[in-house]
Write a protein that binds this DNA or RNA. Structure first.
Length: 503
RNA sequence: GGCGCAUUCGUCUAGCGGCCUAGGACGCGUCCCUCUCAAGGACGAGAUCACGGGUUCGAAUCCCGUAUGCGCUACCA
């Protein structure tokens, strides 16, 4: 019943106005999986309710800005199929979509708030701010700006101005009362106004802080739902205050839990492999990644896990977003990627694995690879690897001429060199007289040979496997040999015999 | 320190007052299948639902407190 009520509320909120959501990354580096998961919620939400997905670049921190970060971001979004409807590369009616190109809007809003008495110029130096922070920390007082410039007289302002100080604009937070907002995931959240300090809206370089830019843009871009990580909950009351002072209607808020590292702390670069693009390089499939990421912090029911993009979109609902931080479990991703890999058609798999083989196979292997040959190998490796870049290490023996292994590998447990020698010699003889190297014929021939030699099938197959693949675990023998072909197999058996002689 | 949010198997999660002696998945173990390896199938171990009080005939589910974790506390986002 409780759930139904919430659902009703959500549906109504959605009906009220067209759904417009935005993903608003700050171009400070490679996009990590946590960022992208937020974008995914935006995308799914937009598609689910026939809305618009806006990409907006929050490049308001000149110092942290990283060259190429926007391209990385767009690359990552595109790889996952998170296509945006408005934004860089797409245009739209609410641009520009780079905040650095919208500076006049923020300035205008900030000055309006100053004129209304909701904000003020602050001339405090960084040194002073640093000093009060230290004092506050030492005396364990509440931290935050001490409102030194809140009630400056016109004369005082003129004096500071004359000193050539570029002021910041701070919001005048009410000293009393509470600010409350409703979050669709977390419910009602209330803050005492006296725990919030007079935050900076406009920096002295003329750039806005996140808080101001966010409010101005979400309003002017007609954003209906703000979807962002839980870390923003504490900032939301500031945003509410600005909406109110500016006379805007606030959007709906959907905060979602964060992705955490192994130490349960907010995911960041020090947690290692967190950049989304790294998963592409490691050979994960975008559809698996999409499915997996959607399940971090969201679930459909008590059992469904493998879902197509369409199913994920059609079944998405806020009510099913969880509230607790999720740890990125790579082992489960590996499993899920394997599921998706096995579901691919051979042709599709071949096309996807080809570049990975090109890249990771040893340098002596001639390039470009023969696509027809790869497509014969593909079905043998497809069910046995979990990521595309496992392919090269797993299937190298199909490509490499000189196999490296110890002679002792040929002699399995409960086997003697004599038996192995006889088995391989017998195989060499039988196989060389074979006209076709068909998988069924091979099996038939070799099983018969084992029988004739008076050994178990495995006692023949195992050394043969090592001889032809240089490993004890490999794809099924006869299929493998059929793909390798007669000449290569016989050569490898000869090499194995030589190794046995030498030992 | 202040404020906010959270807390169910190792991990991701189901659970919305009786269906819960808590379900599923990954991983792990045993077995089956089998030329090895995967895949697949069967079975199993694994959670006193953070703890303590309350409310109720009945609580993992509601309330209060405590603990712990995380987030915010920047002219970062």
């Amino acid at each position: 019943m409780y759930l139904e009520k919430r659902q009703e509320i959500t549906e109504r909120l959605i009906m009220d106005k067209p759904v417009r959501v935005r993903f608003a990354p700050s171009p400070t580096g490679r996009p990590h999986v946590g960022n992208i998961r937020t974008a995914m919620f935006d995308y799914i939400m937009a598609r689910r309710f026939n809305g618009t997905f806006v990409l907006r670049i929050e490049d308001t921190d000149v110092e942290r800005k990283v060259e190429g970060a926007v391209e990385y971001m767009m690359d990552a979004l595109s790889w996952l199929g998170l296509e945006w409807d408005e934004g860089p590369g797409k245009g739209g009616d609410y641009g520009p979509y780079y905040q650095s190109q919208r500076l006049h809007l923020y300035k205008e809003a900030a000055e309006k708030l100053v004129a209304q008495g909701n904000a003020y110029y602050c001339y405090c130096s960084e040194e002073r701010l640093e000093k009060i922070r230290k004092e506050q920390a030492a005396s364990k007082q509440m931290s935050g700006y001490d409102r030194h410039c809140r009630e400056l007289t016109a004369k005082q302002r003129a004096e500071y101005q004359a000193q050539g100080i570029n002021p910041v604009i701070r919001f005048k937070v009410p000293l009393e009362g509470q600010t409350m907002f409703h979050d669709i995931v977390y419910g009602d959240v209330t803050f005492e106004n006296n725990t919030i300090d007079d935050f900076v809206m406009l920096k002295s370089d003329g750039y806005p802080t996140y808080h101001l830019a966010n409010v101005v843009d979400d309003h002017s871009m007609k954003i209906s739902h703000v979807i962002r990580a839980e870390e923003w909950i504490s900032s939301t009351p500031r945003h509410m205050m600005m909406y109110k002072a500016l006379g805007y209607d606030p959007p709906e808020y959907v905060h979602h839990p964060m992705l955490v590292g192994a130490d349960r702390a907010k995911l960041s670069k020090r947690h290692g492999s967190v950049s989304l693009l790294e998963y592409r390089e490691k050979g994960y499939l975008p559809e698996a990644m999409f499915n997996f990421l959607a399940l971090m912090g969201w679930s459909l029911d008590d059992k469904t896990e493998i879902m197509t993009r369409r199913q994920l979109i059609d079944n998405f609902s806020f009510e099913r977003i969880g509230k607790t931080g999720a740890f990125f479990n790579i082992e489960k991703l590996d499993w899920m990627n394997g599921v998706y890999m096995r579901a691919l058609s051979v042709e599709d798999f071949t096309n996807r694995v080809l570049p990975f083989l090109e890249k990771y196979l040893p340098p002596e292997v001639e390039r470009p690879l023969d696509a027809a040959y790869v497509s014969r190998i593909a079905p043998l490796i497809q069910p046995r690897i979990n990521t595309l870049n496992d392919a090269a290490a797993y299937a190298d023996f199909f490509f490499v001429d000189k196999l490296e292994y110890e002679a002792s590998m040929l002699i399995g447990k409960k086997m003697t060199p004599e038996v192995v020698l006889a088995a391989l010699k017998g195989a060499e003889e039988k196989l060389s007289s074979l006209e076709s190297f068909d998988q069924n014929l091979l099996e038939d021939t070799l099983r018969r040979l084992a029988e004739a030699l008076g050994i178990k099938a495995g006692q023949l197959f195992n050394p043969l496997r090592v001889a032809t693949t240089a490993r004890e675990a490999a794809p099924p023998l006869f299929e493998t040999m059929a793909v390798l072909g007669k000449e290569r197999c016989l050569n490898r058996i000869k090499t194995a015999l030589a190794k046995l002689d030498g030992s």
